[in-house]
Structures are given as structure tokens and as C-alpha cells.
Simulated assay, not measured.
Amino acid sequence: MASGAFAISDLLTAFTTLFVIVDPLALAPIFLVTTSWAAPHERRQVGLRAVVIAGGILIVFSVAGSAILRILGISLPAFRIAGGLLMFWIAFEMVFSRREDRAAAPVIEQAARADELRRIAVFPLAVPLLSGPGAISATVVLATQFSGVAGQALLIAIIVLIMAITYGVFRAAAPIDRLVGDTGRVIATRLLGVLLAALAVQIVGDGIRAFMKLNGL
């Protein structure tokens, strides 16, 4: 992708990739569990703090992720392949409900401790649910495609937009959960998982081609 030239399809792909990985709709029930003991204003504070922290983490990796890879001696194609494989694993967990099952146990444990309100915003909401390895990997991969100041600004804007949507979903979590119900939530999670799997395969394929070209294969 040339610097300064960003098609609508590129922006939609970046938004879709991060939105599917962050998956605010699937996290809404978990947010309800973690804040079930809290007053409405406390719940809003937890949601806001979580999205701000997660957004900050992703923005840092969108700006400095490539530099971190250079320091570690990791090529961008190699990281793209690894990130794609990790995203595919997350998609696998979404399709077969393993992500929700794994996240539920520590969440319930944390929600029972009302004196750890701030810690809940950091863990497990901000990390690893909102800005876990999958989201960080996707952000670094996308940062290699959105080059230049304009590209970084667009990627940061996408991250901010997704976090704003996530906060809105958290604010409306209770009525959304009642409206969607268990069946609707399961269907949405499965569909998002299949979509993420397709995106992951595309990223891995692009990474393999770039890796082979980089190594003269």
C-alpha cells in the first residue's frame, strides 16, 4: 500500500479486522458479570477506564510496533504470519466457544471483589480481553500497511473509533444482552469467528509471499 493512498476497502478491512478481534458484542456479557455489583456510575467508570487503557496500548503498538520488531530482529513478514496464525486460533476459539469459557472463570472471581474496582478495568477487561495478543498482533500488522504519518493517523482513528463503539456497547450492555439473548449472542460470535478466520488466512498468505520474496525464494 503506497503511503498516502488508502482505499475505502483498506480502511474497512482494517476496521473489520480489529473490530472482530476486540469483539465488543461478545465482551458485553463479561462486562456485565465483572460489574454486576457496581452502581451505574461505577460501571461507566470501569468501562471508560478499560477502553482508554486498551486503546492506549494498541496506539502505542501502532506507532512503535515496527521499531520493537527491529530491535528484536523479527522481520515484518514473519510477524505477519505469526499474527495471522494467532488470529486464526482466536477465530477457532470463537467458533467453538472456547474463548468465552476461558475468560469466564477469572472474570467471575474478580467481580466478587468490589474493592478491586480499578483493577478490574485493567484486568481482565483492558488486558487481555480488549487488547490481548491477537489485537496487538493485528495492530502491528496493520501498521505495516498504513505507512507514513497519514496512515498512522488513520489507523489511530480506527482504534479510537473501535474503542468508542466498545464503550457505547458497554454502556448499553444490559439492554443489548436482554435483546440479543443467548441464541443471538452465540450466532453472532460464530459468524464473527468465521469472518476472522478468513481474514487470518489472507494475512498468513500475504505474509508467506512477502517472507519468500524477502529471502529470495
Rank of each mutant, 00 (worst) to 15 (best):
I81H: 10
R171A: 12
V204E: 05
T144M: 06
L155C: 03
L179S: 06
V201D: 00
G134T: 05
A210M: 08
L76P: 04
I187P: 03
L199R: 00
L130R: 01
I108K: 15
R70L: 02
L195H: 09
I81M: 05
T16R: 07
R80P: 00
P40D: 10
V186P: 06
H41N: 12
S147A: 08
G55N: 00
D115V: 15
I203W: 12
A138D: 07
A200L: 01
A172C: 05
L161N: 02
R113N: 13
A200D: 01
V140T: 02
V201L: 01
L86P: 00
S62V: 06
M1W: 04
A150E: 12
F88P: 04
A2W: 10
L129D: 10
A200Q: 00
A188K: 03
Y167R: 10
M87T: 02
R190Y: 02
L11K: 03
V95C: 06
R80L: 00
E116W: 05
F96W: 14
V63I: 14
P175T: 00
R190M: 02
A121P: 00
P128M: 04
A5E: 15
I81S: 10
I187V: 15
L179P: 07
P24H: 02
L196A: 12
G134F: 09
M212R: 15
A138Y: 11
G47E: 03
Y167L: 11
I71W: 15
F19T: 03
L154E: 14
A104I: 09
A164D: 06
R113Q: 15
V107G: 01
G55M: 01
L129Y: 08
A67D: 14
A78R: 08
F31H: 00
F79Y: 01
I159D: 05
M212N: 09
L214H: 09
L117E: 14
R43M: 06
